[in-house]
Write a protein that binds this DNA or RNA. Structure first.
Lengths: 148, 148
DNA sequence: TTGCTCCTCACGTCACGTGAGGTGGC
DNA sequence: TTGCTCCTCACGTCACGTGAGGTGGC
């Protein structure tokens, strides 16, 4: 289960604690035994976690059919959940891309200014460098490049 | 600060507790006062959190310049961090997209089978429906559609 | 027989959330 | 003056991580 799912033993035991999976039984020495069905369930749980589902939401997923007693509505709710998570990941990705562009864009320009710099590199010098308009740096770069 | 950054007061106080931001001072009644500079820093922290940075990694970002004392290497390390997070988000997005496709793909087929179904919808009936080969359902659907 | 892995408590961690009880500021 | 917001403890929560001390299984 550990190797096939990429989780730690502790994580698998924790999923059992909260009632998501369950071993078929135990070996005489106390080691847990699982059916292939449980491995598949664990892998689905792992993928749902990666996709941003909380354990509570995963519990909802596994209870959708029971809760609605109507496969069509259950499927629609599942799609709703998936789309919500997709929106969330897209927002995160957009934030990251913007940070990267903000940062990378001006970085190359500054690298040139530094390459031509006659002063030895140092914190005080760079933060007061006349070649660089610190006030106009994008915020990301300002906080990495600048002091405090 | 709350309105302009989209965080709760508790979150902002927490960032102060761990030393990421700091109010300029207090009003006579105890309310925190911030400089515009701190709002910008808070907004950057918020975006980095959205992008998947931990508070510890954000502390590293703000300490990069001091730690390396070399703006070029500091920038390279920042790009490394950004790319690591990008890879992480891409993996999560790929997992989600696959779940969606697995699910949506067969769902439409099943909807037809159900539309033509003569039986009233019910848990026991659907899980043993002869029209649906439960063993060949993609795992996502199998766990939502099926029982247990 | 030697290691590596699993076992069970049980406390720790990260990033806040959530009352409880009280005051501030427009 | 009425509300809404902020304040400070302080305990709770989510999803595990991390030893401590002991056994299992190839």
């Amino acid at each position: 289960m550990v190797r096939q799912s990429g989780n730690t033993p502790r994580t698998i035991r924790f999923y059992e604690e909260v009632g998501l999976i369950r071993p078929r039984g135990r070996t005489q020495g106390g080691h847990r035994l699982y059916e292939p069905r449980e491995l598949e369930k664990l892998q689905l749980i792992t993928d749902l976690r990666l996709a941003g589902f909380s354990l509570e939401e995963i519990r909802v997923v596994f209870g959708l059919k029971r809760a609605t007693a109507d496969a069509k509505r259950a499927s629609q709710q599942m799609m709703q959940l998936l789309n919500d998570k997709l929106e969330d990941l897209k927002r995160r990705l957009a934030a990251l891309i913007q940070l990267k562009e903000e940062f990378a864009g001006t970085m190359s320009v500054l690298q040139n200014a530094c390459a031509e710099c006659k002063q030895p590199p140092g914190q005080e010098l760079c933060s007061s460098c006349a070649e660089v308009d610190h006030g106009n740096l994008p915020r990301t770069l300002r906080w990495v490049w600048h002091l405090d």
